[in-house]
Design a protein around this nucleic acid. Structure first.
Lengths: 116, 116
DNA sequence: CAGCATCCAGGGGGATACTG
DNA sequence: CAGTATCCCCCTGGATGCTG
């Protein structure tokens, strides 16, 4: 980032969309999204019920909603085996995995500063 | 992050607060916060009116609100010179500056993936 | 098992007008 | 110049009950 006297970090051209920063936030900013992503980064593949068990307190509506948004944004992959009884597995996508480093840093920053 | 078979990224103890990730999101997740932080990281010190000019489209209410929250969270510093006419300068705090690396990475990730 | 439907509160965010 | 004060919309997120 620059200091001298003008715009480098946020140049005029990119100002409108905050150089993509806001895009990133909108993708992971949902109430439960980072928890879901973290769980999937940790377990590779999880069934719906596993995620639900893991994220105590989340309601079914919210879980489905956040899963769908993550899927629409291409961060996770939904695999419906179309069996009876239903069996659906969720996994992280390439795009989702590319967020791993960022999430870890957010985690570290949060841990470090949340007690201040 | 781990793969073998269990929880490292999100261990049970930290699950409740998502290992601090959610804390981080709440601090920078406001509609205009990253723009303000980026502007202050870029300019060191800015007057209220400068920020307002820079962030076209933001309303006064929103600007003040987000500035106050950023200040309450310790990310920026407000310096009121108590002059007439008023003169108030905003600058980034140490805690705020420690977010710089993270913001740049969010920017890069967003730029790279927003066209997909 | 893996959802969907409905209802609802709260707050985030915006427009506009006013002030010390 | 640097804010306040109102008003208002809508969307997020939560509770609860139902279903293929």
């Amino acid at each position: 980032m620059r200091k001298e006297n003008s715009t480098n970090f946020l140049n005029e051209k990119d100002l409108a969309n905050n150089c993509g920063m806001y895009y990133t936030i909108t993708l992971i900013g949902g109430r439960w999204k980072i928890s879901i992503l973290a769980a999937l980064l940790d377990h590779e593949v999880m069934r719906y019920s596993e995620i639900k068990t893991r994220l105590t307190n989340i309601t079914e509506r919210m879980l489905i909603k956040q899963l769908k948004e993550l899927q629409d944004d291409g961060l996770i992959i939904r695999n419906d085996y179309k069996e009876v009884p239903p069996r659906v597995e969720y996994s992280i996508s390439k795009k989702g995995r590319s967020l791993e480093k960022l999430l870890i840093e957010m985690q570290q920053w949060g841990k470090k500063h949340s007690k201040e």
